[in-house]
């Protein structure tokens, strides 16, 4: 068995642990605007690999709370950065995974989230008003985790999603935008949370998603584009929600994800031979979990969090992963 044919869990765990030690690297500081997301990605990857405790819980929670933007009533990506829905969802997901929601001013953050909904039903990312179906997903996921979904105007929200649906069954970032696997996932997962998958043309969409697999096993995000490990999550999670994971070749995809590992330094890249990062690491590991890779913890494809955490909250939806192999 070659090194590449199995998941190098201990190496990936130490890779995630080492991410905070790159403070002498310019790239580390140029990505400060993603720090909160990166911690969520790292923690989720660790949870799926069964090493949740590899990062210190207290330090993590303290960092999350240090990113609270008191003026806006939500989280920024880094201390002193402005509040944004992207960082806010990641912060809430971390607090949920670490069972630390008691640290959060829930009414205030709910107020922030609800304030971002536009008359059309879509959500803005922050007070400056950029709109995107990604932000609507963030809002729905966060409200659901906080048990406050009842405060959402569901019809208005669903109406906007349905206007983003294209003839290929997919969804784009806004009305009129081209279908893109990552946007498909946010829309389908959001609709799953709202129990409104009835507005999805499921057969057409599952066809479009299955056609993302290329002959090298990897998945792309749009027709006639290159493969990339992160689509292992966007495409597979969407297929899992539609209960159609068997419509692609899981063995070839698994081999592709494993071939993008860095077998020296740990971590997973977008494709073989490239520089690794935590984003591709979590989405590679997430994909492997859905494919039933032995020894991994189940991932919930709707929330992109450990399935057990979502089950404990009573939020599990009717998705289907491949059976866990031993």
């Amino acid at each position: 068995m070659s090194q590449d044919s199995k998941l190098l869990i201990p190496l990936h765990v130490s890779y995630v642990q080492s991410l905070g030690e790159n403070k002498d690297d310019l790239t580390y500081h140029l990505t400060a605007h993603l720090r909160m997301n990166a911690i969520y990605w790292g923690l989720t990857a660790l949870c799926v690999m069964g090493h949740k405790d590899a990062l210190n819980r207290e330090e993590m929670i303290d960092f999350v709370m240090s990113c609270w933007d008191e003026e806006a009533g939500a989280f920024g990506a880094h201390p002193d950065h402005d509040a944004h829905i992207l960082a806010t969802l990641s912060a809430i997901q971390i607090l949920v995974m670490q069972d630390a929601l008691d640290r959060l001013d829930i009414p205030r953050v709910v107020k922030f989230i609800l304030s971002l909904q536009q008359p059309s039903g879509v959500f803005a990312g922050d007070a400056f008003g950029e709109i995107d179906t990604r932000f609507t997903y963030c809002a729905i996921n966060a409200l659901s985790l906080l048990g406050r979904l009842s405060e959402l105007d569901v019809n208005k929200t669903v109406d906007y999603f349905s206007k983003c649906r294209n003839f290929d069954g997919g969804f784009g970032s806004t009305i009129g935008a081209e279908s893109h696997a990552a946007q498909v996932w946010v829309c389908v997962a959001a609709l799953a949370i709202l129990d409104r998958l009835d507005i999805v043309d499921q057969e057409t969409l599952a066809w479009w998603l299955a056609e993302r697999q290329l002959s090298n096993g990897g998945l792309n995000g749009r027709p006639e584009k290159l493969e990339d490990v992160c689509y292992s999550h966007w495409v597979l999670s969407s297929l899992a929600i539609l209960r159609k994971l068997s419509w692609i070749d899981s063995e070839k995809l698994e081999a592709f994800i494993l071939s993008a590992q860095d077998s020296e330094g740990g971590g997973i890249a977008d494709r073989p031979g490239d520089m690794v990062d935590v984003f591709h690491t979590v989405f590679g590991v997430a994909g492997l979990s859905l494919l039933g890779y032995p020894g991994l913890v189940d991932l919930d494809p709707v929330y992109c969090m450990p399935a057990g955490v979502i089950e404990d909250l009573g939020l599990r939806k009717d998705w289907q992963a491949l059976p866990r192999r031993t």
């Binding site: 002498d24 690297d25 310019l26 500081h29 990339d228 977008d270 490239d274």
Partner: peptide, 24 residues
């Protein structure tokens, strides 16, 4: 990171040294 080729340890260290003043 997309489409960035993996670098060796020594290449990374060399890049860090080059970027030191930019970082500061």
């Amino acid at each position: 990171m997309h489409n960035v080729k993996r670098q060796s340890r020594s290449a990374i260290e060399a890049r860090k040294a080059r970027e030191k003043s930019q970082l500061d």
